[in-house]
Design a binder for these strands. Structure first.
Lengths: 341, 341
DNA sequence: ATTAACCTTGCAATCGATTGCAAGTGCAAT
DNA sequence: ATTGCACTTGCAATCGATTGCAAGGTTAAT
């Protein structure tokens, strides 16, 4: 219908075109009640016709907010790498969806700054209305301190003592329990745990792993809990070293799918078959889990839900209401690698 | 040394503290030559001490730029999914690095808008100084039109006729050639091509695939070129269907590693061994390629370099100099899946 | 006809940083 | 002592949108 005209750049331009003041145009475009219905319709049509797009910086300056949320991924501090776990990408997608639905943009934060006072005045924080942290890792104190300085944040992670920030997280305890119980039910006796327990999420999964042993009346052997870093490259080295050690096990519970896939490959390299000799269970259910060989049994985290819940919580926090903590259900997905018939 | 004081929020605050005008503070913090060396040092120290952080919106409004670059991922139009290919995440990391080095922030664009006039006035474009598109897919015309409207963009992809935008890309022709030659050298005779050739990058890889056949004096059979969608879920279905068809082949060249991993799994499901019965080569060398089973032979794209080159090109474009097109070298990484000795 | 109430619009200040221009200072050369 | 110049600093306009307040117009009730 209405063909797009040449771009019009400011409210003033539109106002001049329509012969009104820019205050009126502003009210029209913001659906203010202080304006005549017909005037509003006309101005909105005019804006559309001329392809007007608001200048967010001016608006942001005036309103002291900018419709941008930052997302920061917390990595295993031992690696200076980028996140390469597809889990992050899927989480990013979930969050992006939630933000788009609420008319917010997503600013991706670079590797988190270590220094607290730096972070609070960093671009990531200053350039956005709030920050979503994915994973809390060992930065618990820093997160607390941010909140204390009045920054709006929400964290994907697990519960920790003395926590000042709102939390959204998977059911790590239940996930660890379900994965381990499944292996125990399949008759496995010596189940190894692979993961970095300094991350609270993994610590909770480990507790679930121990609880499952308790319920089954079997001892969880401490020597079968291994500290494996989260990033792919370090994980592979670490796992190879473990397989060369004298410990033997007939199953492995890994705190991520990438780790599980690396483990399966390493097991193959030393001549062990999956799941005949060693059953493997992962965590996350990244989309590659179902297409790898053998298909990976894993604990599925509901990422799309997680993304939108994180966003809702943060927006609540931004609007001044402290959000409640929320746990997202997890679900064991059984595939070939876990040795269940 | 200097402990952080309570936050100070504007240039004016700092100016009052120091007893100078805010113009002077502004000049000091921007290393303007129009200022006394001692004054500058003092003011910079004061700013640091009070943890001052500039208001980007105000600065952006005044300077008409905002130190933000948007990144948009172009997906196979047949899927409405999010990107799940780890390649995207690694590329995102590379770009993020490049931007951080140049003091730019990264805004993640939501699923690309279809409508051209919409896109040009969309938040993605209006909220940033430029846009990096990863993949051009079938949106060539839209990209041209954006440039024609004066938007700064750079595209990761492959060359196409009548192109108005600057391009950075891998050596798809060479990559396709190397992968296929490698399979031919290993004695494979019937090599299938899996990929969506509507994407120019994949089309170039297919041409490389054909050229390799030509050089070897072997016919590339048209019935062995299959249209496989890029997203994991559709790819798996599609591959399963192909394997049920009557076509036989002793090797597959896939246009992505995720596709290759899915293919290996599907081959296993119908009782074919990799690489004994069918050799497989992927593309990208995502970090899972080396840890999957069997380890994947693939064409490595130098992502970190790609990221920083994309950024450099875009920044050049932003500063008014049209950048030259750049091709990033690719390299065949031979692993177990390809049936070489 | 007068008054009050309401509805609609415009005026002008404001958010925080940048920058052209003017003004003030100090120093050296005449 | 005067002039000129270089060096520093401040003044005030500016970027584009929002909003409290005032002003104009309309309507209805008395």
């Amino acid at each position: 219908m209405t063909k797009a005209e040449e771009r019009v750049s400011s409210l003033q331009d539109l106002a001049d075109l329509a012969g009104v003041s820019r205050a009126t145009v502003s009210r029209a475009l913001n659906d203010s009640p202080l304006i005549n219905e017909k005037t509003r319709k006309n101005l909105q049509a005019l804006a559309r016709k001329h392809n007007y797009a608001i200048n967010q910086q001016a608006r942001g300056l005036r309103l002291n907010r900018n419709q941008i949320v930052s997302v920061a991924f917390m990595l295993d501090t031992r690696s200076d790498q980028h996140p390469s776990d597809p889990f992050f990408l899927e989480m990013l997608g979930g969050i992006a969806d939630g933000l788009a639905k609420n008319d917010y943009d997503l600013l991706l934060a670079q590797t988190p700054v270590r220094n607290i006072s730096e972070l609070a005045s960093s671009r990531v924080v200053r350039n956005s209305d709030g920050v979503i942290f994915v994973g809390q890792n060992e930065e618990h104190q820093m997160l607390n301190s941010l909140v204390d300085q009045g920054v709006n944040i929400v964290v994907w992670g697990a519960d920790v003592d003395d926590r000042h920030y709102p939390l959204v997280g998977g059911d790590n305890l239940g996930g660890g329990y379900a994965a381990t119980s499944h292996l125990l039910d399949a008759g496995r006796q010596r189940i190894a745990f692979f993961g970095n327990r300094r991350s609270p999420e993994n610590a909770a999964r480990h507790t679930g792993y121990q609880n499952a042993h308790l319920s089954a009346g079997i001892a969880a052997l401490p020597e079968l809990t291994f500290d494996v870093p989260s990033d792919t490259q370090h994980a592979l080295d670490s796992i190879a070293a473990i397989l060369e050690s004298s410990q033997h096990f007939d199953a492995i519970f890994c705190t991520s799918d990438v780790m599980a896939i690396a483990a399966i490959s390493a097991l193959g390299a030393v001549g062990l078959r999956v799941p005949e000799d060693v059953a493997v269970v992962g965590y996350d259910d990244i989309s590659l889990a179902s297409t790898s060989s053998p298909p990976l049994t894993t604990v599925r985290q509901n990422i799309p839900t997680a993304g939108s819940v994180l966003v809702e919580s943060l927006l609540q926090s931004i609007s001044g209401n402290p959000p409640a903590d929320i746990t997202i259900k997890s679900e064991l997905v059984i595939r070939q690698s876990s040795g269940a018939s």
